[in-house]
């Protein structure tokens, strides 16, 4: 398998947001309460950010561009 995708900006962005999403999810599980206005902010934001990161990683790995 070619690892050329690691030079794809989408991979870099995906990796960054996947890590940030995981940090937020970890904080929701282990940290102080994140309940604001009835919403678990770290959980919801962490999930969204993590999913966005994975989406960008998938694009970079499975849909390579000429760049």
């Amino acid at each position: 398998m070619s690892f050329k995708f690691i030079t794809d900006l989408r991979f870099v962005i995906g990796l960054f947001f996947a890590i940030v999403g995981l940090i937020l999810l970890g904080t929701w599980m282990l940290g102080p309460s994140d309940l604001v206005g009835g919403v678990h902010l770290n959980l919801i934001s962490g999930l969204l950010i993590f999913v966005f990161g994975i989406f960008m990683l998938v694009l970079a790995v499975f849909f390579p561009t000429s760049e």
């Binding site: 940030v20 940090i23 937020l24 940290g31 604001v36 902010l41 770290n42 934001s45 962490g46 950010i49």
Partner: peptide, 10 residues
């Protein structure tokens, strides 16, 4: 005011 630790960092 609104962000808990973690999201505040973001």
């Amino acid at each position: 005011r609104y962000y808990p630790t973690g999201l505040l960092g973001v």
